[in-house]
Design a protein around this nucleic acid. Structure first.
Lengths: 232, 232
DNA sequence: AAGACACTATCAAGGTTTTGGTGGTTCGCA
DNA sequence: TGCGAACCACCAAAACCTTGATAGTGTCTT
């Protein structure tokens, strides 16, 4: 796949130099000479990477352009500057840039840095932490904090949701009353198991459990506690 | 979430210096003094980031360690070296490193670079670039920072816009009061959740929400936070 | 097999916390 | 110094948690 790189600089010479240098590495290069053009081009063409000079000769400057871009896109940005001051670098990186390169630089280093960044965004998105749970007609989205029953979203209060999440993220595992109380209400709640019962009951109602039709999510073990059905 | 960083260097002084410097920024720092130890520790502790000196005094050197790590893990690696030669940088980055920093360096720059890298891997798998958002009679142009309601442009103050953008770019996702406050106002605002309420109220008015006619964009979950309507 | 007992389910009425809505005061900038 | 934005304080309304009362279920004893 041919990568598209947007080069933003007010000096025609550097633009040309980068166009040739990067083009030689197999990238498609498009250029902009000021901040407004850079933003417009990014929106229209969605490049895979943006190389952005900090001093653009006119407003907005590179930092400002970077900030604006970061409001709506995560396209990798490499900042360029003649300044080697630490403060400038910190400002650029804090503004949302992915890397910072001081001029003059070698094409080989730039290429290697671009590849390092592109390699990372191509990589599989992070470790697998469970983000959703399914069981029968029940669907829980842990990221959005949403719960659906039979395809329809239902509303849960904070405690109800916490309780459901605790049980559902430990499918098949027996949770004692004490453990549930401690995790959802807090360790100081001692022996007030009654809370758990009331909320389990409310949950069951909202989840539309139907023992007659064998639709059950929260199972109980008398004298011990509750557990969520095992998920296949 | 406290990030864990593994520092690999043969000089005790630099290890100590980084442990203090990074620890002061809220990271948990573990250290290794040679390549074998580094690999073992990485396998055992799975740090969130590895800072790796190129010259470790003994075999294997930093480059070799980096190559070996990359055979089975994608944990971000930042290489450190006294060499400022382009060739060395290219070799390090090609070996799978994510960044390269020449000694001596400032702690602020190192911190900013670490954050830049962690920011990227933490980033949600959200689509890369979205330039506009529609929901019912609401239209947001993220590039030009314009907001239209029923075809008519409305004016939002900076905070109002930031708040709307935060919510609208995470449709369906529950945003807690704390998260909103931190993202729009800044982490130092602590518990002043009430600001959020006031501005949500102002936004709702300007967006002409009408609960009676089921025209709602910002939904609330009592005790949790707010979320933008899901977009179909 | 009947009854006692312990645990569980269900319901509904306060009391408390959280949110919506408004308006005044302060702050920053031209 | 005048304007708009941001901040802050207050009260009413809504949602939620707590609580007690009562009914239901299963198990063990006699």
């Amino acid at each position: 796949m041919k990568r598209k790189i947007l080069v933003v600089d007010d000096e025609p010479q550097l633009r040309k130099q980068l166009k040739i240098g990067l083009g030689g590495h197999g990238y498609e290069v498009i250029t902009a000479s000021n901040g407004h053009e850079a933003i417009t081009l990014t929106a229209q063409q969605t490049p895979d990477m943006i190389i952005l000079d900090i001093s653009l000769g006119s407003e907005p400057n590179g930092i400002e352009v970077c900030r604006q871009l970061r409001e709506w896109t995560k396209i990798p940005i490499m900042m360029l500057s003649v300044h080697d001051e630490e403060k400038t670098k910190v400002i650029a990186l804090s503004a949302g840039a992915d890397d910072y390169l001081t001029k003059p630089f070698g094409m080989d280093e730039m290429h290697a840095r671009i590849e390092a960044i592109l390699r990372r965004i191509t990589a599989e998105p992070m470790e697998h932490t469970r983000t959703e749970i399914r069981a029968g007609d029940l669907y829980i989205n842990l990221v959005n904090r949403q719960v659906f029953v039979e395809g329809e979203e239902i509303h849960l209060t904070p405690k109800e949701y916490d309780l459901l999440r605790l049980l559902a993220t430990h499918p098949g595992k027996m949770m004692t009353h004490r453990a549930i109380l401690g995790a959802v209400w807090g360790p100081e709640y001692g022996e007030m198991d009654h809370y758990v019962r009331v909320f389990v009951n409310q949950l069951r109602k909202k989840l539309r459990e139907n023992p007659a039709r064998n639709v059950r999510y929260i199972l109980n073990d008398p004298g011990v506690g509750y557990r969520f059905v095992s998920i296949d």
